[in-house]
């Protein structure tokens, strides 16, 4: 019989849906309490192993696959880490989807109206799949900070958006990776929706062993998905 244990509930590091300093949460977060429901077969299943059919083949080098023929501009970096569950067991064969701004902090998105330059050689999207040890690795450009309209002189710290499905509907995660020593983190409403000290789970570590000589700086960032609860739910 397959493992029918539910996945654990949110831990204290998860942000609330309503966080007034991030202004657009005000009209987009529930006012009613969430209805707590047991996890059924619906929530403990998921589309594992179908990533290529759905999303397409891996794109692990974001500096290479734009249609422009030249090199992407900016600081080349390698981001590597493990996807784990809360018992520190690896989560193999799970997709990590990636999107980010370019070195100037500009997205290719049409709604990004900031006048920082686009880079014809950098799109800023990729995806990788974890190996049997839960490891993933991609090469990209360190993104720049960018202004946004949340409040006067608001700037997002440099970040990379990461999206994971994990083994089940219940293990879904979308997060953002931040860089060490970024002074914008402590004044960013989105990062600060995560209470301290847990906010620091979102800060990657510079790692000389991940750094590739004469090629790219290395950062490590482990991603922890919800683990299994101890006991199955009995209806």
């Amino acid at each position: 019989m397959p493992d029918a244990r539910p996945y654990r509930a949110e831990d204290p590091g998860q942000p609330p849906s309503l966080f007034p300093p991030y202004r657009s949460t005000a009209l987009r977060s529930p006012r009613q309490p969430l209805v707590r429901v047991p996890q059924t077969l619906t929530e403990i299943t998921g589309p594992a192993g179908t990533w290529e059919a759905l999303m397409g083949p891996a794109l692990a080098d974001l500096t290479r696959h734009a249609r422009g023929s030249g090199e992407a501009i900016g600081q080349r970096i390698i981001v590597s880490g493990r996807v784990l569950d809360e018992d520190a067991r690896p989560v193999p064969d799970t997709v990590v989807e990636i999107w980010q701004a370019n070195a100037a902090g500009r997205y290719i998105h049409r709604n990004d109206q900031w006048n920082a330059p686009l880079d014809p050689n950098f799109t800023g999207t990729g995806r990788v799949v974890t190996d049997a040890q839960g490891r993933y690795r991609f090469t990209t450009i360190r993104p720049g900070a960018y202004p946004w309209g949340n409040h006067r002189n608001a700037w997002r710290p440099a970040h990379i958006h990461l999206s994971l499905l994990g083994p089940a509907f219940a293990t879904r995660l979308v997060t953002q990776l931040y860089f060490p020593d970024d002074p914008l983190i402590e004044i960013d409403p989105i990062a600060n929706a995560v209470p301290r000290p847990y906010r620091n789970r979102l800060v990657a570590r510079f790692d000389i062993d991940t750094t590739a000589p004469n090629h790219a700086l290395g950062y490590v960032f482990d991603i922890v998905l919800r683990g299994r609860d101890a006991t199955p739910w009995e209806p």
Binding site: A88, H109, D112, H161, V174, V194, Y198, L202, I223
Partner: peptide, 21 residues
């Protein structure tokens, strides 16, 4: 000492070229 669930963050307004296929 900080090991635990990676916190959620918003997809933001610019997910369209990264997520939907």
């Amino acid at each position: 000492a900080l090991f635990g669930q990676t916190p959620w963050q918003t997809v933001g307004p610019f997910f369209h070229y990264g997520l939907p296929w």
